Simulated assay, not measured.
Amino acid sequence: MSTAERVHIRPVAEAVLAARGAEQPLAGRVALVTGGSRGLGREIAIAFAAAGADVAVVSRKKDACVELAEELADATGRRVSAHAAHVADWDRLTGLLDEVDSELGPVDILVNNAGIAPLYPSLDEVSEELFDKVIGVNLKGPFRLMAAAGRRMAANGGGVILNISSIASVRPTAADLPYAAAKAALNTLTAGFAQEYGPTVRVNTILAGPFFTDISRAWDLAAFDEMAESWPLHRGGRPDEIVGAALYLCGPSAGFTTGALLAVDGGRLAAP
């Protein structure tokens, strides 16, 4: 199977039908999803709208957010807004929350999904610019959004924060070390913010394994398949396979779950 075949982006209407259940556990909620126009964020935004939430789709590219927002609103009947924001821009983030509040109402579900993991030739050739960029998107932005959104949620009676981390945070390699370090720090923030804003705001994290998103187009698939043979499920994940965990952690069924790290990785962390 080619990379293009594995990185299959379903039409929004088809994805909504697949995600829709008999119940709408997120009805009446307002969810903000960063990195929401593609990859795992796109699937989460679609699933949340299908589950009854109004959704703010956020990424650096406004056009991509607008396109998804329009299709998703048509397919679900929910209110879906589009916002351009670079999550590493500290001063932009309170304004982003104000925009969503104005268009949809106060945010009571925040999904910190935006992330970057740029390649580099070796650790001693990692530039300060690359390092700062990785920390900015994967750590600084989520910290600021959790602090600002969490305070508002607590004042408004409660909410849920979901961070999308990575198994690299507990299984780092030399090839992804700045990214892994940032995600490990994000895991730590999960515990800290769960304490700070509990009991009314729950904060949890998904440790994502290798998913076939657009990022996987750069993978050596033969080498990947050989490596995956040692994992319990013997494969990488489809982007829509993040949805069940995200809906659970952000829904009412997880009312007693906070400060948790949930691996969705095909069993990669269970492998030697």
Rank of each mutant, 00 (worst) to 15 (best):
W231T: 08
E71D: 12
A194M: 11
L17C: 09
V170I: 06
A270G: 11
F212N: 01
A182R: 00
S166P: 03
R42Y: 15
D98T: 09
A22M: 12
G41T: 12
V111Y: 10
V55L: 09
R171L: 14
T3N: 13
N113Y: 03
A56K: 02
G136Q: 07
F256H: 05
A147D: 07
G36K: 01
A154D: 04
A223V: 05
R171Q: 13
L262N: 02
A117Q: 12
A194V: 09
R42V: 15
S216R: 04
V66P: 05
E70D: 08
V137E: 05
A147R: 01
K62P: 03
E71Q: 10
I242H: 05
H83W: 05
R38N: 07
T3K: 10
L119T: 03
T188G: 03
A254M: 14
T200E: 12
A263G: 01
A260K: 06
F143W: 09
Y120K: 05
L93V: 06
L104D: 13
P106F: 15
T34Y: 05
G159L: 14
T213F: 13
A182V: 07
P25T: 07
I44V: 15
I44W: 11
A180I: 15
V7M: 10
M1L: 01
G39R: 07
V30D: 09
D98G: 06
L162E: 08
L221C: 06
S102A: 15
R268S: 13
A114P: 06
L110E: 07
A64K: 02
